[in-house]
Nucleic acid binder design. Structure first.
Length: 587
DNA sequence: AACAGTTGCGCG
DNA sequence: AAAGCGCGCAACTGTT
């Protein structure tokens, strides 16, 4: 053990609230674990403090909760390279089966809270979030401990847990990826998606008619509604209430058991086509109509709130604004600022490629090498058509048993035994109530007490057939969850690594000279290519025109780097579909 | 009037 | 009613 002195080269800087200083305080820690004395930071001096140290030499900022601190830094023009988000990392460490000793982390229950953003039924307007002082925000969202001593203690517990993981230490990689995701999520909200409100309005008007008075329904929607009622011969039929609509349909001779699109499409009746159109229009109006536009788009930016780690598998969720559900129909409203372009990329068949890599299935990797994975599976002779390949692969990952899926999955099992063994094993573990773990170490939650109760009751001597069948059914349900967990979760890890790499590369671009393009993206992101949108396996970068080609290259390089970071030399090719355009049109 | 639960549909 | 995973959101229903 080297002598403990004041840290010469700080590797971490832990930041928390300080009662004494009335604002924040920080402690720097070096590789040997030597700690600086507590450094007081005035309440309004955090951005300056972080900025000065970041310029001197980037270190990993350790704090309780990125969305509580980082928006304030960004609006002050300060970006950080790396962080360690104690709340998100705690969540992973407390359940990861790759960690040797979890006892201390698990005992710190004050850190085990769900994300504040995920809890709130309705997030406040995102722009407001960025106008508030850090002080006011911390009062509004007391989620995890915020004091410096608590942060230091938790960081110690987490580092001990990380050190207890086996080599190679994938957990350390996962925590870094999760934390950079926390930074990116805040940055995405800060920069915003460039949104053409006029184009959005055009799309709405074309489909629904001109914007109606508040509370009134648009003309085209009313007209289609009348068409449905006429065809039903029921001038008073309610179309917006599923039970009432079902009764009206039955009265008109349509023997449907629900009013879902899929079932309605099966029936022949003159009321069905206009009804399907009515539902489509009503959905567009309710989900992304003029009200949505007023609430979520300001100054040419749509600023959704992302929730990293918001899904059990590790995928991001969103809270407010429906960032992950923007309909393709509205894609043309996504439009680069003047003088700029959007560089969009999505990964072709991300999940099956991840499965091929993690299972080491060379045949499956070869099927996807340099081409559409489904085409490769057809060429391998396992199935006859691309559509069959798709159904088979989705069935393999989701646990399909019936129909085409049940027929095709066994063929995949013969052609790609290693890949199928991995998902089949994950399903078997889940059916027995066990826990599965992603490639980098995120573990699935165990089944709940009710699940265990049902299984226990069904295994008692006096259990009836109904009980046994119910127990078997929910066991299979849980098996499908764990089957999918390992693939969906590892794909989410790959995506984080991809974005983390890309973020680093993008910031190496020199700001564009001249009058700042993309001014609405804020002090940190204007004039420089930046991430603007993320959706599981897809990113959109907003870039000055001159940089677009280079950005496309960076996206591609980042995908290959992410593959190597997770899977080393595994011969899996993560293919991208790249587009450079003013509008983010899909297909 | 406020709340939880359900339905239906958008996204991957 | 998606045969098979994971979500968020709005509107409606039924309760308190």
């Amino acid at each position: 053990m080297p002598p403990r002195e004041s840290p010469s080269t700080p590797r971490w800087c832990v930041v928390g609230r300080s009662a004494a200083a009335g604002g924040f305080a920080a402690v720097e820690i070096d590789d040997q674990g030597a700690r600086s004395p507590e450094i007081p930071i005035p309440a309004d001096g955090l951005a300056e403090f972080v900025s000065a140290r970041e310029a001197e030499a980037p270190r990993r900022w350790v704090w309780a909760d990125t969305p509580a601190v980082y928006p304030g830094l960004l609006s002050a023009g300060v970006r950080v390279e790396r962080c360690h988000d104690l709340r998100l990392c705690h969540q992973i460490l407390r359940s990861s089966e790759l960690v040797g000793d979890r006892s201390a982390v698990r005992a710190a229950t004050q850190w085990a809270v769900p994300s504040e953003a995920a809890e709130e039924p309705r997030a406040p307007l995102a722009p407001a979030l960025f106008e508030l002082e850090a002080e006011a925000r911390s009062v509004r969202r007391p989620s995890v401990p915020e004091s410096l001593p608590e942060a230091l203690a938790e960081f110690d517990r987490q580092r001990a847990a990380i050190d207890s993981a086996a080599e190679p230490n994938r957990i350390a990689l996962l925590l870094a990826a999760e934390s950079v995701g926390a930074l990116i999520a805040v940055e995405l909200t800060s920069a915003g998606v460039p949104w053409d409100a006029e184009e959005h309005d055009r799309i709405l008007s074309e489909a629904l008619g001109p914007r109606p008075a508040p509370g009134a329904k648009p003309a085209a929607l009313l007209a289609v509604g009348e068409e449905v009622r006429a065809a039903l011969g029921d001038p008073a039929a309610s179309l917006d209430s599923p039970p009432k609509l079902l009764r009206a349909l039955r009265a008109a001779g349509v023997e449907a058991s629900s009013t879902s699109r899929w079932e309605l499409a099966e029936h022949e009746h003159p009321a069905i086509p206009p009804l399907l159109l009515y539902k489509k229009l009503a959905r567009l109006l309710a989900a992304n109509g003029w009200n949505w536009l007023d609430e979520w788009v300001r100054d040419g930016r749509y600023r959704p709130v992302y929730v990293p780690g918001g899904v059990v598998t590790g995928r991001w969720a969103s809270s407010g604004g429906g960032a992950l559900q923007i309909p393709r129909q509205l894609r043309p409203a996504l439009r680069a600022d003047p003088g700029c372009l959007l560089v969009s990329a999505d990964v072709s068949q991300l999940e099956p490629r991840v499965l091929a890599a993690m299972s080491g299935d060379r045949a499956m990797a070869a099927a996807g090498a340099g081409r559409d994975l489904y085409a490769g599976i057809v060429e391998s002779g396992a199935v006859a058509t691309r559509q069959d390949a798709k159904i088979a692969v989705l069935g393999a990952m989701y646990g399909g048993t019936s129909g085409d899926s049940g027929r095709l999955v066994p063929r995949l099992r013969r052609a790609f035994p290693a890949a199928m063994r991995l998902v089949d094993d994950a399903a078997a573990v889940g059916e027995q109530g066990g826990i599965v773990t992603t490639w980098l170490g995120r573990s699935s939650p165990p089944p709940g007490d009710e699940w265990r109760g049902v299984q226990a009751a069904a295994s008692l001597p006096g259990a009836g057939r109904r009980e046994e069948e119910h127990a078997r059914r929910i066991a299979r349900d849980f098996g499908r969850f764990t089957r999918n967990f390992v693939v969906q979760g590892t794909a989410a890890e790959w995506a984080l690594a991809w974005m983390g790499e890309l973020r680093r590369r993008l910031f190496a671009f020199e700001p564009s000279p001249g009058e700042a393009p993309m001014a609405a993206s804020g002090p940190v992101f204007s004039a420089r290519p930046h991430l603007a949108f993320f959706l599981h396996d897809e990113v959109i970068v907003h870039a000055p025109r001159a940089h677009a080609e280079a950005v496309a290259g960076a996206i591609e390089e980042s995908a290959q780097a992410a593959g190597r970071l997770l899977f080393g030399d595994a011969p899996v090719d993560f293919r991208l579909d790249l587009r450079i355009s003013e509008r983010a049109l899909k297909d």
